[in-house]
Nucleic acid binder design. Structure first.
Length: 285
DNA sequence: CGAAACGTACTAACTGACTA
DNA sequence: TAGTCAGTTAGTACGTTTCG
């Protein structure tokens, strides 16, 4: 696979998920494009001598960088890439920009492969587009744009949550436990909090906090200390290892966010405008 | 003595692994 | 690929303890 020079291309979105749809596409000189994520598109080239998958990503100023991902399985059952495999290759290429040799990646271990397939499926915006189209068909009297906007917000939150889950997993905790560690950490090293303050801050029930605290204490990540001012209460404090886990997790989360922003191509000014918009929306809710 | 803080038991929902 | 099942997680209800 070879990177071509960045070139100007108009946006387009063809549904390439179905082999039937791909079969019905007429051969043409340029690939058909499917929007995988904003700025990252999966291409399906169909010519007289075969079919192949392409990828392109937005590089700013209306320009795209394009690459060949590999032959399509539609035309090469033995060595070609399926839609999901092409999407995986696209995600890998778009995330680090490293060109591959045009052949599918070596088979991953079973679980790793399943995770990659699931991740690739989650990256398909067609789910959201399908919902938008369905509403537009069922209720043409309603402008779905606003609902679609919030649907994308929910999806962004979902994807962010998955990344936080990964970070928690690397730290040997679940995401709920990690949120407790981070809540304790941001209140300052060595500061003890009441379980009541924790469940109010984390928007969970007291029962849920009790379980999380039991888990964290069993892992020696927190310690319980008597509250001199209230004998009903037993305060919660990070241990040294708990603080180390919280700090490491926060570093990983921040680095992950930086990578996402860099990959999106959004500038600081654009992010500040988005942030201001979100603040105003939240204040109005 | 009512209210608040916390913990426990039980239940529902979700997720992932396994199997046909 | 769909269905099943076990494990996990969080929520609700309620009991106990303590405060004001």
């Amino acid at each position: 696979m070879t990177d071509t020079s960045a070139n100007r291309l108009p946006p387009a979105d063809i549904d390439l998920t179905s082999a039937q749809v791909r079969r019905e596409l007429p051969a043409r000189a340029k690939p058909y494009w499917h929007i995988s994520t904003p700025g990252v598109h999966l291409g399906y080239y169909k010519g007289g001598r075969g079919a192949a998958w392409y990828g392109r990503k937005f590089v700013g100023e209306g320009r795209y960088r394009q690459t060949k991902l590999g032959p399509s399985r539609d035309e090469d059952a033995a060595g070609g890439l399926s839609f999901v495999e092409a999407l995986e290759a696209l995600v890998a290429w778009a995330s680090d920009g490293a060109p591959t040799n045009g052949t599918p990646a070596a088979p991953a271990p079973r679980e790793g492969r399943r995770q990659a397939e699931r991740a690739a499926k989650q990256l398909q915006p067609t789910r959201l587009d399908t919902i938008s189209r369905a509403w537009a068909q069922e209720r043409p009297d309603v402008d779905f744009w606003l609902a679609g906007f919030f649907l994308r917000l929910e999806y962004a939150h979902y994807l962010h949550d998955r990344r936080v889950q990964e970070v928690a997993k690397q730290a040997g905790a679940n995401v709920g436990d990690l949120h407790v560690l981070l809540a304790l950490r941001r209140n300052g090293p060595g500061v003890a909090m009441r379980p009541t303050d924790l469940y109010r801050e984390l928007l969970v029930t007291s029962g849920a906090i009790t379980k999380r605290l039991d888990n964290l204490r069993a892992q020696n990540l927190i310690e319980r200390v008597a509250d001199a001012g209230d004998r009903r209460s037993e305060l919660v404090r990070l241990t040294a290892s708990g603080q180390a886990v919280a700090d490491a997790a926060m570093t990983r989360i921040t680095e992950s966010l930086k990578r996402i922003v860099a990959a999106s191509g959004l500038g600081r000014e654009e992010l500040i405008q988005l942030d201001e918009g979100f603040r105003r929306l939240i204040a109005a809710m």
